[in-house]
Design a protein around this nucleic acid. Structure first.
Lengths: 235, 235
DNA sequence: AGGAATTTGTGCGTATGTATC
DNA sequence: AGATACATACGCACAAATTCC
């Protein structure tokens, strides 16, 4: 079987952890389980988990205290913006911010069928900044069946919080399509860039958010762990 | 024998490597030996060395390229200021800068005898900044026999370059004395702080630079390795 | 107060994957 | 295509800091 080379485990882990934190599943200041226990549950080595935790700490979303534990640290200014951070991870640092340009209910493009049953979807277009520098045009599709109307003002907070509190959904994974032909109609012209911005050196990123009902009856990371393991094929 | 708890090995290693780079022993773009070989020579595990190398890369002084090698990257703006960086390491990030306040030839204080044969020494006093914020008062003593007169203008460049090119010396290690009573005469008054600066929350750091003749006939890191191993007690 | 238990930090060695030459 | 070299991952042992009894 063809073995598609995925991202390193420790990055997948850190992304998952940051998603969980950004989504608000962990109260500010709450403590994570011991590293060995977590590593055991997730089916990875302690060292791998530790590398992921170090990443999360570097992003300022976690306090690691020797002899005590790993404590979640909510940072509103960042938290509201860390919805999609893979791009940020690739750049290695910088303060990410986002600006919602438009939200439209449209017929889904071809190839987006598996997203949901509804032939229509909500198309969210955002500008992504790192340290104030425009680095990406972002397009996200939500299944149309979730809601009839979404306004830009609905998305003033974190996209994750919107998913969580308004739609009752939790993001379990993110699928990237990066490239010029990710979406044929996606040009700077149709994107209506604010004056002063050009698209030189800017990647065009199309994202499809796979989703999953929010059912958390056990420990906070059980659902995330299940999704992770099913994706990884059991460590 | 009393076992003084030293800094972690990987930090000692990264400091040594950064000293070597800052001292100009490696040409810009030159490649380090393979990691296994270096780790073997230094008597440490590959993982430990890799952690140190990652630190140096994070400081921007090294490019690590998979399948190719570790390449030295001179960054003048930083390089001229990384002479003493332990304080910077403790703060974890930030752009360090320094400002030389004074250079005086004085009789050495008690306890500095082992520094050299001369009863007199050059006292260098600097202000250390991180991201423009004053974080330390620094005092460095050089043996008086090395030179008769040192002017502030001589130190406009990196202290390491001064040691290397003007005195023919190489810094092999740094001894720290941190505390209020490190030097009895060291008060904000006698230090002549520029207006607007106070000493609140500022550590007073006294440093004595142990030195070693510059003889490099073998590979670039042989001397540094010897000093490191003799200090560590053979890995 | 103090010692044991808990939990993270450091260090080592090894095997395997992946990019470069 | 083979060799070289860095990246990832695993597991273990011990140290250091904290917490708890």
């Amino acid at each position: 079987m063809a073995k598609t080379s995925a991202l390193p485990k420790f990055i997948q882990l850190s992304e998952m952890l940051m998603r969980e934190i950004a989504a608000g599943h962990l109260a500010d200041g709450s403590r994570l389980p011991p590293e060995r226990e977590m590593a055991d549950d997730l089916g990875v080595a302690v060292g791998t988990l530790r590398k992921a935790l170090a990443d999360v700490e570097a992003k300022g979303l976690l306090d690691r205290i020797q002899g005590s534990g790993n404590y979640v640290r909510h940072r509103p200014a960042v938290d509201s913006v860390y919805a999609f951070f893979r791009l940020e991870l690739l750049k290695g640092g910088g303060l990410p911010t986002a600006e919602v340009l438009s939200v439209d209910r449209l017929a889904k493009p071809d190839g987006f069928a598996r997203l949901g049953g509804d032939p229509q979807g909500h198309r969210i277009r955002r500008l992504r900044f790192l340290d104030g520098v425009l680095v990406a045009l972002e397009e996200i599709w939500l299944d149309g069946a979730q809601r009839d109307v979404i306004a830009v003002s609905d998305l003033s907070e974190s996209l994750y919080h919107f998913y969580r509190h308004e739609l009752g959904l939790v993001i379990a994974a993110v699928e990237d399509r990066i490239g010029v032909d990710a979406l044929p109609d996606w040009t700077p012209d149709t994107f209506h860039l604010p004056a002063g911005h050009t698209t030189g050196h800017i990647a065009r990123v199309s994202r499809t958010a796979a989703k999953q009902p929010a059912e958390f009856s056990r420990t906070w990371y059980d659902a995330a762990r299940a999704a992770y393991i099913s994706r990884m094929g059991k460590g």
